[in-house]
Write a protein that binds this DNA or RNA. Structure first.
Lengths: 191, 191
DNA sequence: GTCTATACATGGATAGAC
DNA sequence: GTCTATCCATGTATAGAC
C-alpha cells in the first residue's frame, strides 16, 4: 500500500507545494517565478501548469493548510472555560504551528502578495479577529493590542530572525510559549 | 531660501524615494516595478533612470537612511553606563525609528529582496549583532534570544499588523517601549 | 504527467531628442 | 529633467504532441 506514487515522498502535487513554499519563504511570492519552481522540481513550466491553473492557485494552495490549522487551533481554544486556559491553548497551538512551519509563518503574515490575496478573499481578518479576541478579549486596551501584536511578531520572527535559526524546535517552542504567556500576563494553568 | 525646487516639497530625488518607500512597503520590492514608481510621480521610467542607475540603487537609497539612524541609536546606547540605561536608550531609539517610519521597518526586516541586498553588502549582520548585544548581552541564553526576537517582531508588527494601524504614534510609541522593557525584564531607570 | 513551442505582456535598462 | 522609442530578458499562460 505504498503512498509512494513517484520517486520521492508524496504526490507530485505535494512536492510542488513543498518546493513552492520553500521558494516563497526565501524569495517572496513576487520574487518567485514559475520557472524557479519548475527548476526546483526538475521539470518544465508546463508541467507545473498541469497541476495548477495559475500562480495564484499555487499561493492559495500553499497558504490555506496553515490557515486551516490556525482556525482549528482557535476553535479548540474557544472551547476552554477560563481565560488562562483559552490563552494557553491558543498560544500553544499557534507556537506549534509556527515552529513546525517556521519560514512559512512570515510569508503568511508579511508577504504583500499573500496578504493581498487573502484580503481579496476576506479570509484573513475573521481569523485575526478571533485570535485577537482570544488573546486580549473583546474590548482590548491599546496596551493589550500592542502585546498581541508583539506575540504575532514573535511568531513571525520565528521564521525570519537569524538569531533564532540555530535553536532547535523544542526549545524554540518552549521559550516562545513561556515568553508569550508572560507578555500577556497569563499564569501557566496547572495540568 | 526656498527648499522648494519643484512643485511639491523636497527635491525630485526625495519625492522619488518617498514614493518608492511607500510602494515597497505596500507591494514589496519585487512587487514594485519602476513603471509603478514612475506612474506614482506622473513621469516616465526614463525620468526615474535619470535619478538612479538601477532599481537596486533605489532600494539601497530607501533603506540606508533607516539603517544609519539605527546605527546612531546603537552608538548612543553603547555610551550609557548601566545595562538598564543602555537597553532603555536603545529601545527608545528603535521604537522612535519604527513608529516614525512604520511601514518601512517591516520592509527592512522581512522583504526578501532587501535582505538579500543587505546580505550582499554585509551591512545588516554587524548592526544586528550590535543591537542584540545591547539587548541581551554577549552570551545570551536561548530565552533571552527569543525575547530579543520578539522585540524585533514587535517593531516589525508596527508596520504590518492591522490591529496597530488605528493607534496614534504617541501611544504606540509609549506602549511599545513599556512592553519591550517588561519583556526584557528591565526596570525603567529614573530620569 | 511531462514535453516543446509559442503567444503576449511586462520587467529592467539604454539611446538620443527636447 | 523629462520625453519617446526601443532592446532584450523574463514573466504568465496556452496549444498540442508524446
Amino acid at each position: 500500500m505504498a503512498v509512494q506514487r513517484s520517486q520521492r515522498a508524496g504526490t507530485a502535487r505535494d512536492r510542488l507545494l513543498a518546493a513552492a513554499a520553500e521558494l516563497f519563504s526565501r524569495h517572496g511570492v513576487s520574487g518567485t517565478s514559475l520557472q524557479m519552481i519548475a527548476d526546483e522540481l526538475g521539470v518544465t513550466k508546463a508541467a507545473v501548469y498541469h497541476q495548477f491553473q495559475s500562480k495564484e492557485d499555487i499561493v492559495w494552495a500553499v497558504v490555506t493548510p496553515v490557515l486551516d490549522r490556525l482556525a482549528e487551533v482557535a476553535e479548540t481554544a474557544e472551547s476552554r472555560r477560563s481565560r488562562a486556559e483559552r490563552v494557553e491553548t491558543l498560544l500553544s497551538g499557534l507556537v506549534d504551528a509556527a515552529v513546525s512551519n517556521r519560514r512559512l509563518m512570515s510569508v503568511l503574515q508579511s508577504d504583500p502578495a499573500v496578504l493581498q490575496l487573502l484580503r481579496l478573499h476576506s479570509t484573513l481578518s475573521p481569523l485575526e479577529e478571533r485570535i485577537t479576541r482570544l488573546l486580549v478579549g473583546p474590548e482590548p486596551t491599546d496596551e493589550a493590542l500592542v502585546c498581541a501584536a508583539m506575540v504575532s511578531g514573535g511568531l513571525m520572527a520565528t521564521g525570519i530572525d537569524p538569531r533564532l535559526q540555530p535553536l532547535d524546535d523544542d526549545s524554540l517552542r518552549r521559550h516562545l510559549l513561556d515568553t508569550s504567556l508572560r507578555l500577556l500576563r497569563v499564569r501557566r494553568p496547572s495540568r
